[in-house]
């Protein structure tokens, strides 16, 4: 006697190709993405800054303007003296108390590196000063 056994029910759609595609997408996104936490410092002159011009460049030692020179080794100089981080913070804080239109100009050496400039920008920002201008010398050092 031959008994007809019921066929086992077939899966409607095989899930194995789905897993394949998902794994390929997973590996693709893992490999091509960058996971570094990136921030941005605006580098263009904003329109409100252009409307309110900086204090005269001709008087860098004036009340509203602090001129900091960035040496090739990355150290900030103020009035002929190299500053460490603490002295720089104190000088910037004293400058911020000088007035509401306190501004900072940075004369950056072309040989200083980007990290030195960003560190100085951080110090200026930490001191509560928002008006920063970076000057550069023309020509090749």
């Amino acid at each position: 006697m031959r008994l007809a056994l019921p066929q086992p029910p077939r899966a409607l759609i095989s899930l194995v190709p789905l897993v394949d595609v998902l794994l390929i997408m997973l590996v693709f996104f893992m490999v091509t993405s960058t996971y570094l936490d990136l921030d941005m410092i605006p580098a263009a002159e904003r329109s409100e800054d252009a409307a309110a011009p900086m204090p005269a460049q001709a008087a860098p030692g004036g009340a509203g303007m602090l001129l900091i020179r960035l040496a090739p080794d990355g150290r900030p100089w103020l009035r002929g003296q190299a500053l460490d981080a603490g002295a720089l913070a104190a000088a910037l804080d004293a400058h911020r108390r000088a007035g509401p239109d306190a501004a900072v100009s940075v004369l950056a050496s072309p040989r200083a590196d980007v990290q030195a400039l960003v560190t100085l920008m951080d110090a200026v920002n930490d001191a509560g000063l928002t008006r920063l201008r970076v000057l550069r010398t023309e020509g090749v050092p």
């Binding site: 996104f29 893992m30 091509t32 993405s33 960058t34 996971y35 570094l36 990136l38 921030d39 941005m40 410092i41 605006p42 980007v114 990290q115 400039l117 960003v118 560190t119 920008m121 951080d122 920002n125 930490d126």
Partner: peptide, 23 residues
């Protein structure tokens, strides 16, 4: 969590800066 920016053909490590805003 990843960014899909085009990466440069050389290694670029951006500077450490705490005063930036989110890119």
């Amino acid at each position: 969590i990843g960014r899909m920016d085009a990466s440069a053909p050389f290694e670029v490590l951006p500077p450490l800066g705490l005063s930036g805003s989110d890119l």
